[in-house]
Design a protein around this nucleic acid. Structure first.
Length: 593
RNA sequence: GCGCCCGUAGCUCAGCAGGAUAGAGCACCAGAUUCCUAAUCUGGGGGCCAUGGGUUCGAAUCCCGUCGGGCGCACCA
């Protein structure tokens, strides 16, 4: 049951949030200085910031404008700051503007300005924090793209969660997002899969197949696929040569694996918009077309494959292959797009795949595991080449590497091997720990740092888990609203003047949500949202506990309905911001724990 | 050997496109539970931001070297 006390999406008016607004105020003040001749016109303001100072004692907002612009303006920071202060003091919401340190300008805003922001949160509801920054640009985010040879395991988990959260974050900041999964259904791996399934097929028909041979996939998850094929085709393919059944079995096996993968992803709340098949791509002739185009532009040539930089394998034998000139775009050596048997290399198909994606997007983002870091340069080179065909600027393309997750159980590393069938499946972990814990945990550190995931610890020590901490703050808020309702108190913005410094401190923190969202989107770092939520929850819990010793600080003050209404309004809006943040991360905002 | 990522408190990690006295959680120590459920809070100790240079008004943050850890390194994906 949704909270009825706040979520008023769709009621957003044209007002923008306070932090964004003050960036404009400072900009306007600089314009005024230019007009007055105090500041030369046309200086770059790219380095000018407007953000809350680390130390709240310094004020509500600080700008470095004077320090950054003094040098190009040929003046000194404090002189420029003085002029800027005079300008900023004209803004009614500014109660003080002071020069500090080497030339910072510290601004204090009126309490009413913050109370206004609180009202804005209520008006905006689920849209508080939403941004038009992306300007409707289409961004294709490709993530997971695990080989369709088995269930999702924990090795895929981090990329899946980070990619999904990033895609949602970009959508929330005004981008049109396509969530895409590349299905590698054309390589040698899926042939191995088909052969593995053939054994399970024979097994289903009563044959004693014994141990699954080395090099094939031994997992039980292929048993039902074999049974289904046995039921459908009987013994028609038991003795038939591989050529008769390979494609059929491969197709069926891949379809079954993809069903399984989709189901696994669904347990994490992940749903892709588009699944692109490598086999279909090849069949469509797009890879050939890419090669032809590259050859026509002298970007693919037949040449000798060089040994890897700095290391020559002992059994090195030079071969002539069609090579892409990735060195022209910063790679260490040119890369083959076909194997000597004429089949496409992974890279050869991947290059055409990225070109295909680029046709329907303004920008591309790939989320890859760090074990593929070595191939970043070549694919970036290829995208740059293919998308600047007519001498235009290449399509923006980023590869975000997600570092390895070390799986631990009680501090002991869990060894995973698909071959040995000893991998920990994603579904197992989600069932054991829950979607919210998995998602939030994966988002509590930056993606390019390695992380440990001791899921014995995550399961047991739920009190140490940040996700519960944040959810508890939200649940506490909901509980107080409910309790207030039982006593006939409703949140109201009629008397927000009753909210003082301690209450407004919470508002000031919550008001940073929009800029945190934008910064996270720019940096492609959804984990910043998780940390923000933890900070906000912490501030809320602190405030809440003031009521232990000082009953007059509680949300519900029975004898003062106006104060109670204002406090509950505050609580409702803090809850709204927590809810918005959790929604971005795909984590439930529980109303009760 | 080459490339990419990382090195911040005892442990796990933040540090907001360089900004003012480097933060949080856990652990440790000392407190708060007739409470709006303490799944919470308050206070305390604990750092040469691996290391050596450089860039500038200013560096944990940017650049170069060194050391340490991870990942990858022919037609595997």
């Amino acid at each position: 049951m949704p909270c009825t006390w706040a979520n008023r999406a769709g009621m957003t008016d044209a007002r923008i949030n306070l932090h964004a607004d003050f960036a404009r105020v400072i900009d306007a003040a600089l314009d005024a200085l230019e007009a007055a001749g105090t500041l030369p016109a046309g200086l770059s303001r790219g380095a000018v910031t407007c953000e809350p100072p680390r130390d709240p004692a310094h004020g509500d907002l600080a700008t470095n404008a004077a320090m950054v612009l003094a040098k190009p303006a040929g003046t000194n920071p404090r002189a420029l700051a003085g002029a800027l202060v005079a300008e900023l003091e004209k803004e009614p919401r500014v109660t003080s503007a002071e020069i500090a340190g080497p030339g910072f300008i510290n601004l204090r805003l009126s309490d009413d300005a913050w109370r206004g922001e609180l009202a804005l949160i209520a008006q905006s509801g689920a849209d508080y924090g939403r941004s038009q920054m992306g300007g409707g640009k289409v961004v294709n985010v490709e993530y997971v793209s695990a080989n369709p040879t088995g269930p999702m395991h924990m090795g895929h988990c981090r990329g899946a969660v980070v990619g999904d959260a990033l895609a949602d974050l970009l959508a929330y900041t005004g981008h049109k997002v396509i969530k895409e999964y590349y299905v590698n259904d054309a390589g040698a791996q899926v042939d191995v899969l088909a052969r593995s399934v053939h054994i399970r097929y024979r097994e289903a028909l009563g044959e004693d197949v014994g141990e699954i041979p080395e090099g094939l996939y031994p997992g039980d998850y292929l048993v039902p696929v074999g049974k289904a094929l046995a039921a459908e085709f009987g013994d028609a393919y038991v003795k038939a040569p591989e050529a008769d059944w390979l494609i059929l079995f491969r197709t069926r096996a891949v379809a079954a694996m993809m069903d399984m993968i989709r189901a696994d992803l669904a347990t994490l709340g992940i749903h892709h918009d588009l699944f692109s098949s490598e086999a279909e791509l090849q069949a469509s002739g797009k890879v050939d077309a890419a090669e032809a185009w590259l050859r026509a532009h002298d970007l693919v040539y037949d040449g000798l494959l060089e040994a890897p930089k700095g290391k020559t394998p002992e059994d090195w034998e030079p071969v002539e292959l069609p090579l892409f000139r990735s060195t022209r775009f910063g790679d260490d050596q040119d890369r083959p797009i076909r194997k000597s048997n004429g089949a496409w290399t992974y890279f050869g198909a991947d290059l055409a795949y990225h070109f295909q994606k680029a046709q329907s997007a303004d920008a591309l983002v790939d989320i890859w595991g760090a074990d593929h870091a070595g191939t970043v340069k070549r694919i970036k080179a290829a995208v740059a080449a293919l998308t600047s065909a007519d001498g235009g600027t290449p399509k923006p393309f980023e590869v975000k590497l997600v570092q390895m997750v070390q799986l631990l159980r009680d501090g002991q590393p869990v060894k995973m091997s698909k071959r040995a069938g000893t991998f920990v499946t994603l579904a197992d972990v989600v069932n054991e720990v829950g979607k919210d814990v998995v998602r939030f945990t994966m988002l509590t550190r930056k993606p390019d740092a390695q992380m440990d995931f001791d899921f014995a610890k995550v399961v047991e020590a739920s009190k140490d888990n940040p996700v519960f901490y944040v959810q508890y703050a939200h649940a506490r808020i909901c509980r107080n609203i409910r309790k207030g309702a039982e006593e006939s108190f409703a949140p109201s913005d009629a008397n927000l003047a009753l909210l003082g410094d301690e209450e407004l401190a919470l508002v000031k923190l919550a008001a940073q949500f929009p800029r945190t969202v934008e910064a996270a989107a720019v940096a492609r770092e959804p984990h910043r949202i998780a940390f923000f939520l933890h900070d906000l929850a912490s501030a809320f819990h602190s405030y809440y506990n003031l009521g232990n010793d000082r009953p007059e600080k509680r949300f519900i003050v029975a004898h003062d309905s106006a104060l109670t209404a204002a406090r509950l309004f505050l609580a409702a809006q803090i809850g709204q911001v927590i809810r918005n943040g959790l929604a971005l991360l795909g984590v439930e905002a529980a109303e009760e724990l």
